Simulated assay, not measured.
Amino acid sequence: MKVAIAGAGAVGRSIARELLRNEHEVMLVERKLDHVDPTSVPDAKWVHGDACELSLLETAGLEQYDVVIAATGDDKANLVLSLLATTEFGVARVVARVNDPRNEWLFDESWGVDVAVSTPRMLASLVEEAVSVGDLVRLMTLRKGANLVEITLPDTTALAGKPVRKLALPRDVALVTILRGDRVIVPQADDPLEGGDELLFVAAEEVEDELRALIER
């Protein structure tokens, strides 16, 4: 897979190293000359320039890339790049970093963003996930209005002992996995639920309240 990353700060370089370890092809685009350090990620292709400039993206051949990651420290730049990658270059998947949580509402498909990653929100979600029982916690926003959400069943849940097929899930909700102790369970129709299970769902945002109500019954 070919991945273009805008922003070669600590975040961009870390993402690049991880992708290279997984044998993907990576291009790093960086505007600040003092951040351009090919020795820090020697296996990546480096481009010095502004990732919001159409001519630079054309020269870099952005249309050849499968994924664009807008990882700069500037939300405006990340939005502009996301829009250009989608509308001008037809990139299939765009992931954008959200620096200021107040701007998160902008990072959606209207700006060409498939997945928005907000570090403050993710950290808060992980804290909530660790201490919340019986409530729905949104872990990540996926593309087209879907979210990865988690619900931990209380020890006294009325669902204990019932098979997964008895969950009358709302439309546009899928149970992805069950975390039980150190086990990761791919749910089958006859698998029984237990108190303390962590249920991971992919759910459309508009049905999250229905899902919450179902689990709380």
Rank of each mutant, 00 (worst) to 15 (best):
K2N: 05
K2T: 14
I5F: 05
I5E: 04
G7M: 02
A8K: 01
G12T: 15
R13P: 01
R17A: 03
R21I: 07
N22D: 03
N22P: 01
N22E: 08
E23S: 08
V26P: 06
V26E: 03
E30H: 00
R31M: 02
L33I: 10
D34F: 14
D34L: 10
P38L: 12
S40L: 02
V41G: 01
D43H: 09
V47A: 02
G49S: 00
G49K: 06
A51W: 13
C52S: 15
C52D: 00
E53I: 11
L57D: 14
E58L: 08
Y65I: 10
D66V: 06
V68I: 15
V68D: 11
V68W: 09
I69S: 03
G73M: 08
D74T: 15
K76Y: 09
A77Q: 07
N78C: 10
S82R: 06
L83C: 05
L84P: 05
L84A: 01
A85S: 02
T86L: 07
E88M: 09
E88V: 05
F89N: 03
V91N: 09
A92F: 04
A92R: 14
A92W: 08
R93Y: 12
V98H: 08
R102W: 10
E104D: 06
E104I: 14
L106Q: 09
L106S: 01
S110N: 11
S110Q: 13
S110C: 02
G112P: 00
V113R: 10
V113E: 06
A116M: 06
S118R: 09
S118H: 11
T119G: 02
R121A: 07
L123N: 02
S125D: 00
L126Y: 13
V127Q: 12
E128T: 04
V131C: 03
V131H: 00
V131G: 03
S132Y: 02
L136A: 01
R138T: 15
L139C: 13
R143C: 03
K144N: 14
N147D: 13
L148F: 08
I151E: 03
P154V: 07
D155L: 05
T156Y: 08
T157D: 02
T157M: 09
L159H: 10
L159I: 05
A160N: 05
A160D: 10
A160C: 00
P163I: 07
R165T: 12
A168K: 13
G181E: 03
D182L: 14
V184W: 12
V184E: 10
D191P: 02
P192K: 07
P192I: 05
E194W: 11
E194F: 04
E194A: 13
E194R: 04
D197M: 03
L199T: 08
L199D: 04
L200Y: 15
A203P: 08
E208R: 12
L211Y: 11
L211N: 03
R212W: 11
E216M: 13
